Amino acid sequence: MIVNNLFIRLKERNNENIEKTRVILLSMKGKIETLLDLKVEIDISKGDYDLMLITKYNSINDLNAYLSHPVHIEVAKYIVNILDNQVSLRYKSLD
């Protein structure tokens, strides 16, 4: 299983923007065939990042299909406008 963790820092880091972003990210759930699981967590420590998107796939090819899927592309268009910074960590889970 391939896991992709995306850490997101917003330009305007307030609770309203964080919650709106969380809802928009969660809107992809069930709409992209190769996306096995999707979670969005909010950083309660008010650290460097506001949200973490956790997605899971059967293979790297499935991850690539997700990245080019029209639903993901629409969400990414929103995210790019509110994004200050992001960091991604992708790994193969042994679980």
Rank of each mutant, 00 (worst) to 15 (best):
N15Q: 15
L63S: 05
Y78T: 09
I60P: 02
N64G: 01
L67Y: 02
N85A: 14
I42G: 02
R13F: 07
D37N: 13
L83V: 09
S45W: 08
L36D: 09
M1F: 08
L67H: 04
D37A: 08
N58Q: 09
E74Q: 14
K92C: 06
I42S: 07
V80L: 07
S88P: 04
N81A: 05
L51R: 01
N81S: 13
Y91C: 07
N4F: 00
D50W: 00
R22D: 04
T34I: 04
S88W: 00
I44S: 13
K29R: 14
R13Y: 06
I73N: 11
T55Y: 06
T34C: 12
D48R: 13
N81H: 12
V71L: 01
L94E: 13
D50M: 02
T34V: 06
N4A: 09
A65S: 13
L36C: 09
K77C: 07
R13P: 07
N4Y: 06
L89K: 14
A65Q: 07
Q86H: 14
P70K: 05
L94A: 13
R9I: 00
V71A: 09
Y91K: 10
E74A: 15
K39S: 12
I73K: 15
L94R: 12
L89R: 13
K29W: 02
L38I: 15
I79W: 07
K11M: 07
I60Q: 04
D50R: 02
N15Y: 11
E41H: 11
Q86T: 10
D50G: 02
L36W: 02
N81V: 00
Y91L: 14
T21E: 10
K77V: 01
D50H: 01
E12A: 08
N58A: 00
K77Y: 03
D37S: 14
V75Y: 01
S88C: 12
V71D: 06
I32F: 09
Q86C: 10
T55C: 13
D48K: 14
L94G: 08
K92T: 12
S68I: 14
M1D: 12
R22E: 08
P70M: 04
S68H: 12
E41R: 09
L94H: 13
N5D: 02
R13T: 07
N5Y: 09
I44K: 15
M1S: 14
K20W: 00
K29M: 06
N14S: 05
L38V: 12
I32R: 05
S27H: 02
Y91Q: 10
D37I: 00
L53S: 07
N81Y: 03
E12R: 11
Y66Q: 11
V40A: 04
E16F: 11
E33Y: 10
D43I: 08
L83C: 08
L89N: 13
